[in-house]
């Protein structure tokens, strides 16, 4: 509890300017004093809030806001993009057909048609018909690590024990 007390003191000290928020913390900590862990967690929350406030006041370092949330979102985005391949292949075809039926409704007053600029999907519809799978990001095959990534694809590489 002592450690907690000192912790809180330090906290108070650092946030002397923002009396309001500090009082808020104090009240909270007093309420739940019996659980140290919970205390710490709460203080952490408050600490984050403090950063928010300072960011608002200074106007600088705006990118620091919601860093954890941003990281979480980025992670989820990554998760979604790495594949359920089956969904990727067969799932999106239905959407394409929907879009197709939609563009029949692009008429204005039944007489004029709105000519929309080409969307990405439309571009694809009239793109080059070629079966070659182009390498988008070539790796640097002069690097030893890159070279070793395919080393065992060759008969000169390491073989599994059973062969």
């Amino acid at each position: 509890l002592e450690a907690d007390e000192s912790n809180r003191n330090g906290f108070q000290h650092s946030k002397a300017k923002k009396a309001d928020s500090v009082r808020h913390t104090k009240v909270k900590t007093v309420d739940t004093e019996d659980d140290d862990v919970e205390n710490l967690l709460k203080e952490e929350e408050e600490y984050e809030e403090k950063i928010d406030l300072s960011a608002d006041t200074t106007g600088a370092l705006k990118w620091k806001e919601d860093l954890t949330q941003k990281a979480a979102e980025a992670f989820l985005r990554q998760q979604r993009s790495t594949p359920n391949l089956r969904k990727l292949v067969y799932g999106t075809a239905v959407e394409d057909e929907d879009q197709e039926s939609e563009d029949a409704d692009d008429e204005l007053g039944g007489l004029f048609r709105v000519s929309r600029p080409d969307k990405a999907s439309k571009q694809k519809a009239n793109a080059l018909d070629c079966s070659k799978f182009l390498v988008e990001k070539p790796q640097d095959w002069d690097l030893e690590e890159v070279m070793s990534s395919i080393r065992d694809c060759f008969v000169t590489g390491k073989w599994e024990d059973d062969k």
């Binding site: 391949l85 990534s149 080393r151 590489g157």
Partner: peptide
């Protein structure tokens, strides 16, 4: 369609 991650390191 199943994705297979290669267990061995040097197999692409």
């Amino acid at each position: 369609i199943e994705t297979k991650t290669t267990e061995e390191e040097h197999m692409g």
